[in-house]
Computed example of a mutant assay.
Amino acid sequence: MNEEFIGALKEIVKEKGICEDLLFTTIEDAMVAAYKKNYANLNTSAQNVKISINRESGEIHVYAQKVVVDEVYDEVTEISLEEAKELNPKNEVDDIVDLEVTPKNFGRVAAQLAKQVVTQRIKEAERNIIYDEYKQQEFDIITGTILRKDKGMVFVTLGKLEGIIGPNEQMSNEEYKFNEKLKLYIVEVKNTSKGAQIHVSRTHPGLVKRLFELEVPEIFNGVVEIKSISREAGSRSKIAVYSNDEEVDPMGACVGPKGVRVQNIVNELRNEKIDIIKWSKDPGEFISNALSPAKVLSAEVDENTKSARIVVDDNQLSLAIGKEGQNVRLAAKLTNWKIDIKSKSQKEALDAEEERLLNNEDLVIDEEVVTDLSEIESQSEEIEE
């Protein structure tokens, strides 16, 4: 190797962001392996060597390493103290002495090997740089362009890499046409032997959260918080929001002027319905809000079992439950509470039945008391006779 080669190496280090020390150390280690392979038969000391590269001139030196001993038993790995003193008077027993054994034609072999190692390192460094770049975007939103479909998978280009939308991450109401642009949620970034592998989603609740952060400045700035999200992708989502500023209406901020903010999100999600719910510390109030658009008459909550009994007007029951139970199901996911819904007439009927059963129990008790009294009176009459 020469100075021009070293200069080229350093330029690569600068451009690709590769650690210079790591690159040179890797080249030296590779040269050690090459030396042992090619010169083991010519040099008995080939199995115990080190190689040093001058990082300015590019000169390569191969050294056989030997231990200084009083008496030599193995000439391959040991050198006598007397010989070591001749090389350097400061050498002592147990020191390691480097004896240069650089072959005449080793420079050519080394240069070819260095080229291979550098090429490999550049590829590894580029893969790591790209992986780190996308790893920082994990659990964030990214724009992708549809490339192709294959065996249930949808492949998208994300700039430098391809992403994969798995079957469970695809919305049922989307066709995924070639060259179509979509907002995607990065679920996972893996570092594999072939480079970074990115899994993205259109169904993850995190996609809804990130879209609101993009559209609503109050959420992005932290004035309005997203407390929880429940989603059935492609159909309906519920999002619970809370304002840290009393003067800011969290629901109004999310809806935006003339509903433009939430409409942009609905359009991106292919007309998926979005219910914006006001979060509350009070479980009963929060659960009542979560059942929107239904109006709740009363809510009884049990903190121990995390369950709630909800009463609505008769004409609100189907609305509270939703088509195929969707509304109450999403409300339960949003609040993380079990929800039992009854109509007003159902509740009144249950209450009446409970009252009837209680009255019957009281009647049974009274009859038992009368019977007992009758028996006592009869026994008293017998005693008097």
Score class of each variant (00 low, 15 high):
Lys66Leu: 06
Asn41Gln: 15
Ser45Gly: 14
Asp74Gln: 00
Val62Arg: 06
Asp21Ile: 03
Glu86Ala: 10
Ala84Trp: 01
Glu28Asp: 11
Val76Lys: 04
Ala46Met: 14
Gly17Lys: 02
Thr44Phe: 15
Glu82Ile: 09
Ile53Cys: 08
Asn105Thr: 03
Asp29Met: 12
Glu78Met: 01
Val32Phe: 08
Asp95Ile: 08
Ile53Gln: 02
His61Ala: 13
Lys37Leu: 13
Val49Lys: 04
Tyr63Asp: 06
Leu22Asn: 07
Ala64Lys: 08
Thr102Leu: 10
Glu75Cys: 01
Arg55Gly: 09
Gly58His: 11
Tyr73Val: 00
Ala64Met: 11
Cys19Glu: 05
Asn88Phe: 02
Asp70Gly: 02
Ile18Asn: 04
Asp70Met: 03
Val76His: 01
Tyr73Asp: 06
Glu56Gln: 14
Glu20Gly: 06
Val62Asn: 03
Ala84Ser: 09
Ser80Val: 02
Asn41Trp: 15
Phe24Lys: 02
Leu87Met: 12
Leu99Asp: 03
Asn43Lys: 15
Asp95Ala: 10
Pro89Ser: 02
Ile96Asp: 05
Asn38Ile: 12
Leu87Asp: 10
Ala30Pro: 10
Asn88Trp: 01
Val97Cys: 06
Glu83Ala: 11
Tyr39Ala: 08
Leu87Thr: 05
Cys19Asn: 11
Glu15Asn: 13
Asn38Ala: 12
Thr25Gln: 04
Thr26Met: 08
Ile18Met: 08
Thr25Phe: 07
Glu92Gly: 00
Asp29Pro: 06
Glu28Ile: 10
Asp29Tyr: 12
Tyr63Gly: 05
Lys14Val: 01
Ser57Lys: 13
Asp94Leu: 07
Val49Ile: 15
Glu59Ile: 10
Arg55Ala: 07
Asn43Val: 14
Lys37Met: 13
Glu56His: 13
Arg55Glu: 12
Ile96Gly: 03
Gly58Met: 14
Asp74Thr: 02
Ile79Glu: 06
Pro89Gly: 00
Val101Tyr: 08
Met31His: 09
Lys90Pro: 09
Val97Gly: 07
Asn38Arg: 14
Lys104Cys: 05
Asp95Trp: 07
Val76Gln: 09
Glu71Val: 03
Gln65Ala: 02
Thr44Met: 14
Asp29Arg: 08
Glu82Cys: 06
Val93Tyr: 02
Pro89Asn: 03
Gly107Val: 11
Asn43Tyr: 15
Lys50Asn: 11
Lys85Ile: 07
Met31Lys: 10
Val76Asn: 00
Tyr35Thr: 10
Val67Cys: 04
Val49Leu: 09
Thr77Glu: 07
Asn41Glu: 14
His61Arg: 13
Lys37Glu: 14
Met31Ala: 10
Asn88Gln: 00
Gly58Ser: 12
Ala84Gln: 02
